[in-house]
């Protein structure tokens, strides 16, 4: 696969959750992923974007940027916001930790991203914003049982 890159910028409105994960999935489809790989990617992107909306920009709308790079059979996806940031990242990434139990959040977002992707790196600066970087290796068609 030839290398490729895309960038998507949108407002932190909840009706953009569906739109943004579908765009990334469409971009990823050049790697000819299976339906399962595609739904893994969609779900992980949805988690990161939802976090930017409900946590990052909890005090007001802002811009979310998604960049994605395809190199070889690997897709890298970064989701960034310039929102409030995370002060205790280690605690935030623990399964079941949520700062918003009253909103019926379960604290599973980072765990879902970790499980459905091959790697997950989160960088955050308190008061400045958060960047989530995830990669997934898409298996060659010949390796797959279709």
């Amino acid at each position: 696969m030839e290398n490729n890159h895309m960038k998507l910028e949108f407002l932190s409105k909840s009706n953009n959750e569906s739109f943004s994960r579908v765009v990334v999935a469409a971009f990823a489809s050049q790697l000819d992923p299976t339906l399962e790989e595609l739904s893994d990617i969609k779900t992980a992107v949805s988690e990161a974007v939802t976090n930017a909306i409900i946590h990052g920009y909890e005090y007001g709308e802002g811009v979310i940027v998604i960049e994605s790079t395809i190199s070889g059979n690997t897709i890298e996806i970064t989701v960034s916001d310039s929102g409030k940031g995370i002060d205790n990242l280690e605690e935030a990434m623990e399964p079941f930790f949520t700062s918003k139990p009253n909103l019926e959040r379960s604290g599973m977002g980072f765990t879902v991203m970790e499980t459905f992707m091959d790697s997950l790196v989160v960088e955050s600066l308190d008061g400045k914003g958060t960047m989530v970087k995830m990669t997934k290796h898409i298996k060659n068609i010949s390796d797959k049982e279709r």
């Binding site: 569906s18 994960r21 739904s39 969609k42 779900t43 949805s46 988690e47 939802t50 909103l103 019926e104 959040r105 379960s106 599973m108 977002g109 879902v112």
Partner: peptide, 12 residues
């Protein structure tokens, strides 16, 4: 499609 929002919904 369902993400962790569904977990929160079912849990509640």
């Amino acid at each position: 499609f369902m993400d962790s929002s569904g977990i929160g919904l079912i849990m509640g």
